[in-house]
């Protein structure tokens, strides 16, 4: 919509100040609002038009003024008019809505990743640097943030109205959403999918901060272990390293650099290795056997929590060589030399 930016700002600010409109705190928000105002406009036109017809005809053709009705069969021209014009408007809406949908659900490649685990009735956020939060999420402004989310129990839905984003959090599979906060401040997180007794208590605050504040927050609230470090411990303690050792004769495929690659599977298909793939491969290995390897990996279904899976996934993501894996084999104290995840910036 080509509204002058000044007018737009005025409109939005005024509506927001009247508590009739949420604040626009993400890069997505103005796009969503533009479609919203377009739809409001055609709704208004539609209602006014129908109202005018109904009231106009009611006054003009009321029985007192027009005692005898004139029978009219219909009009193909008019029928065509009110078929085609609404159809055209709806199709415009469809295209606009579809473009917006793809914008909201296609994260930029340079976004930083934060994991969200939903459970009855709380949100757990896990930053790659190991910062854990309950019912809160700290994010920097001016930087795309992708949330990789999963539920431990029932359907939840992660909603940030001020960012105009929302996505269902589903048990058994990762779903993602992304946003880029524009204004520093504290905004609501809601669970919008009914999830049992304390559904309305499954809320939290998202704190958008300037990059500098965010930097100092991450430093203060670190637990000392990054997700990848936790993952490395798990990797060693569960014995993953005995097969995925990176050696030429290893029984399991080499995991270094596997993330983001196209993998040839034993069943002939080719897949892109992403978070969801890694998680599935740990839980249902027989459906994800890399070509050239025997289907010998046991399932870890029921043995690793969703948090543990996130740690493992994050660990595998950070593996760009097998040095760390070798270290876990040679020393049981895997956390002595921690891999650095510099500033938690993930490429």
């Amino acid at each position: 919509m080509h509204i002058s930016p000044v007018l737009w700002q005025f409109l939005v600010k005024w509506l927001h100040a009247s508590a009739l409109f949420p604040s626009e705190a993400s890069t997505i928000a103005p796009y969503t609002d533009a479609l919203y105002f377009f739809l409001l406009l055609i709704t208004l036109i539609g209602v006014v038009l129908v109202g005018a017809l109904v009231f106009g005809f009611s006054i003009r053709y009321r029985a007192a003024r027009n005692p005898v009705a004139t029978q009219v069969e219909g009009s193909t021209l008019l029928e065509a008019t009110w078929t085609i014009i609404p159809l055209a408007l709806f199709l415009v809406t469809f295209v606009w809505g579809a473009l917006l949908y793809f914008r909201i659900y296609t994260p930029p490649t340079n976004s930083m990743n934060i994991y969200i685990v939903g459970k009855q009735w709380m949100w757990k956020a896990e930053h790659p640097g190991g910062q854990h939060e309950i019912n809160a999420l700290h994010v920097p402004i001016g930087r795309p943030v992708q949330l990789t989310m999963i539920s431990q129990d029932v359907f939840h839905s992660f909603s940030i109205p001020d960012f105009r984003v929302k996505r269902e959090v589903i048990p058994g599979r990762y779903s993602t959403v992304w946003f880029e906060a524009t204004d520093a401040g504290t905004y609501h997180i809601f669970c919008t999918q009914y999830c049992g007794t304390a559904h309305s208590a499954m809320i939290g605050d998202i704190v958008a901060m300037s990059p500098e504040d965010y930097e100092s927050w991450t430093k203060q609230s670190t637990s000392g272990m990054s997700l990848a470090q936790n993952g490395e411990r798990l990797f060693a303690s569960m014995g993953c390293n005995s097969c995925h050792s990176g050696n030429a004769a290893a029984r399991g495929p080499n995991l270094a650099g596997v993330y983001g690659s196209k993998l040839q599977l034993a069943n002939g298909s080719q897949v892109l290795v992403n978070d969801a793939y890694l998680r599935d491969a740990i839980l249902n290995p027989s459906q994800h056997v890399t070509a050239g390897y025997a289907p010998i990996m046991p399932t870890y279904q029921g043995q690793v929590s969703e948090d543990g899976l996130i740690d493992l996934v994050e660990y595998i993501k950070t593996l760009d060589n097998n040095y760390r894996v070798q270290q876990t084999l040679t020393t049981s104290q895997s956390d002595k030399v921690a891999p650095t995840t510099p500033g938690m910036v993930k490429p």
Binding site: L283, N284, P285, S286, Q287, P295, T299, Q301
Partner: peptide, 8 residues
């Protein structure tokens, strides 16, 4: 034999 995960 089925892999345990598939057997489930």
């Amino acid at each position: 034999p089925l892999a345990p995960d598939m057997a489930q």
